[in-house]
Design a protein around this nucleic acid. Sequence first.
DNA 1: GCCGTTTTCGGCCCGACTGTTTTCAGTCG
Length: 568
Amino acid sequence: MHNQEIAWALTEIADLMEILGENPFKVRAYRKGARIVEGIETPVKTLSDRGQLAKIDGIGKGLCAEIDEMLEEGASRQLQNLREKVPPEVLDMLRLPGVGIRAVRTFFGNGYTTLDELEEGARKHKLRLLPGIAAKTEVAVIRGVEMLRRRSGKFGIGVARPIAEEFVRFLQNLPEVHRAEITGDLRRSQEVVEEIHLLASSQEPDKILDLIEKHPAAVKLLDDGANFVRFQLSFGLPVQVEVVDEAEFIARWVESTGSQAHWAALQERGAKRSDGYSGDWQRFITTQEAEINYYRDLVLPWIPPELREEGSEVAFAAEGKLPEVVKITDIRGDLHIHTHWSDGVSSLEEMIDAGRERGYEYMAITDHSQSLSVARGLSETRLREQRQAIRNLSHRDKNFTVFSGIEMDILPDARLDFPDEMLRETDLVIASVHIGLRQERHKVHARLETALKNPHVDIIGHPTGRLIGAREPYDVDMEWLLDLAAKTGTILEINSSPDRLDLAAPYAKMAKECGIMLSINTDSHDRAKLGDISYGVNNARRAGLEPKDILNCQPLEDVKKILAKPKG
DNA sequence: GCCGTTTTCGGCCCGACTGTTTTCAGTCG
């Protein structure tokens, strides 16, 4: 089992124990263990073999034994036992916003074991007859079940992509495979996908497909044919592997990357060609070895997969109007980072070293501010202490600049968490909404207005507050927000966490059109998450953003000027 | 279950908002 799978298993154990009324601190220990395992970069197997697992803070004897069992057996007996006691959909009830552990226990204790039953109970006003459940909870159940249904069968890019990459490596290591790539929605970096689609080329498709079917992760065969196999992973995600002849690879790759609209637009363009080989253009280009040649034969520049969506991009490309979208190598620093000064896992030193190792020129440490006490937010005194600690560390490397910043809370009553004097002396101020997410629109607007109009607020963090598939955005009129950001010269964040991707690509595109600068940040709470920047970059590419639109694609001196300059 | 320690068991981030309530507990972040 891999680190992520172990982390999922530990989380599931925690959820099930909680439903069964286990000691809350034991539950918390499992959750914490999951978070730690998720953040470890080396495979847990390696640490276990070296006997270093129990030395990690937060992993004691019990969790160590639990993890060792998973590594050896590929499963946890405790988890199996717990699953026998709690039907799977009772776990989903925990995901309903506004429904907590006590309500789930009440539902389960009164015989509700599926979401369908629960929804019916809510619609027929039966839930309110249960102790401690009222009409509002019924509304929350109905809304929440609808949200879960919309999400069902969909998997976040943060789950799908690492798994897809692992299968690609597996395929590439087979001697019979010439080339293997991710294709489909995932290659276009959609936020959520319904399956992983992989394309491989080989002269011996039967042999490849046979091997794939026997892969230990393929728990259930869904479908197979002459040149493909489709199977399901343990947690339900379908994977399709298609094997084609080398000569067909590029054409099939372009076609399967999609979207349908893009492919249709390409075909139309091919059919219209009038310079000699219009009749068999497709046969000609199937023998290409690179996508760039495929597009060149249609007299087009190569179109990045993230832009192959509407179909209209083909015409834009033909007119030379495609944006030069940002690449991951354009990113010069990460400007939203947490450390264990607040709720991060890694130390200040570890985060700074990790940024330097990524080849960044700069980074901003932005821990939470005092009001977010659950995250051990920094008081003014602590922030000043941290600034001094950062200055002390900065002397170690003159080629790497660390800004001392803050992720300051925008309070529910529309005040900011720090006075202006404090903000003035802080290198970079991100203002974010963390509490009071269900307020009415006029209150949310009043809060955002205070933040955007404050001359010291540089960036609005995760501007809509959504968690993909888990929490709706707070109630904000996006056109109003973009207009205000443009007027005040406030930068908006593209939060790279695959759970957030906030701003979403369509809003980021609108922001660019309004002349708003964006900042692609990871919001990392541990050093392993710095790599999430790739999700943010993919999201920005879908929005057609170019390096000039992005704060952290600018050289250090320019970033300093932008942060020092009064807004507006 | 983890940690730290007065080495054997007690304490484990917390405050605001909201409604299950009519005075406190559940939920959220």
